[in-house]
Computed example of a mutant assay.
Amino acid sequence: MAKKELKTLQDVENFKVDEDRLLYSANHEEIRQGLTTDIYFIKTREILNNLDLAETEVVVDIFTSGAGVLAGVNEVLNLLQEKDVKVWGLQEGSMMEKKEVVLRIEGDYNDFGIFETAMLGALASSSGWATAAANCKEAAAGTPVLCFGSRHLHPAVAPVMERSAIIGGVNGASCILGAKLAEKIPSGTVPHSLILTVGDTLKVAKAYDEIMPDGEPRTILVDTFKDEAEETLRIADELKERLDGVRLDTPSERGGVTPGMVKEIRARLDQAGHDYVNIFVSGGITPDRILKLKDCGVDGFGVGSYISGAEAINMTMDIKKINGEHIAKRGRIPGPTKNNRLKRLL
Rank of each mutant, 00 (worst) to 15 (best):
M1K: 10
A2N: 13
A2Q: 12
A2I: 09
K7E: 11
T8N: 05
V12D: 02
V12S: 05
E13M: 14
K16L: 10
V17M: 09
D20A: 08
L22M: 13
H28W: 13
E29C: 02
E29S: 07
I31M: 04
G34Y: 00
D38T: 04
I39N: 04
T44W: 15
R45L: 13
E46R: 06
A54T: 15
T56I: 13
V59S: 09
D61Y: 00
I62H: 00
I62Q: 00
F63R: 00
G68T: 02
V69C: 03
L70I: 03
L70M: 04
A71R: 02
V73W: 01
N74I: 06
V76E: 04
N78C: 12
L79Q: 10
Q81I: 14
K83P: 05
D84Q: 15
V85T: 07
W88S: 14
Q91I: 10
G93L: 05
G93W: 10
V101F: 03
V102I: 10
D108I: 15
F112H: 08
F115E: 10
T117W: 11
T117N: 11
S125P: 12
T131D: 00
A134V: 03
A140F: 05
A141C: 13
T143Q: 09
P144W: 00
P144E: 01
A156H: 08
A158M: 04
E162H: 05
N171G: 08
G172C: 04
A173T: 01
A173V: 01
A173E: 01
I176Q: 09
G178E: 02
K180D: 09
I185T: 09
P186E: 04
S187L: 12
S187I: 14
G188V: 00
T189N: 05
V190M: 10
V190G: 07
P191A: 02
S193F: 03
L194Y: 08
I195K: 12
L196M: 14
V198C: 04
V204Y: 10
K206F: 12
Y208H: 10
E210H: 14
D214S: 15
V222Y: 01
V222C: 02
T224A: 14
K226A: 15
D227T: 07
E231W: 06
T232H: 06
L233E: 08
E238Y: 06
R242L: 06
V246N: 03
V246D: 04
D249Q: 11
T250Q: 11
P251N: 02
E253L: 14
R254D: 15
T258R: 07
V262Q: 08
E264H: 09
I265H: 01
R266S: 05
R266I: 02
L269K: 01
L269G: 03
L269V: 03
H274A: 06
D275Q: 14
N278R: 15
S282I: 00
R289W: 04
L293R: 07
C296Q: 13
G297M: 06
V298Y: 08
V298R: 07
V303L: 06
G304T: 01
I307R: 02
T316Y: 01
M317W: 03
I319S: 06
I319H: 03
I322F: 09
G324L: 09
H326P: 08
I327H: 12
I327S: 12
K329C: 07
G331A: 02
P336C: 01
T337V: 13
T337H: 06
N340W: 00
K343R: 08
R344E: 13
L346E: 02
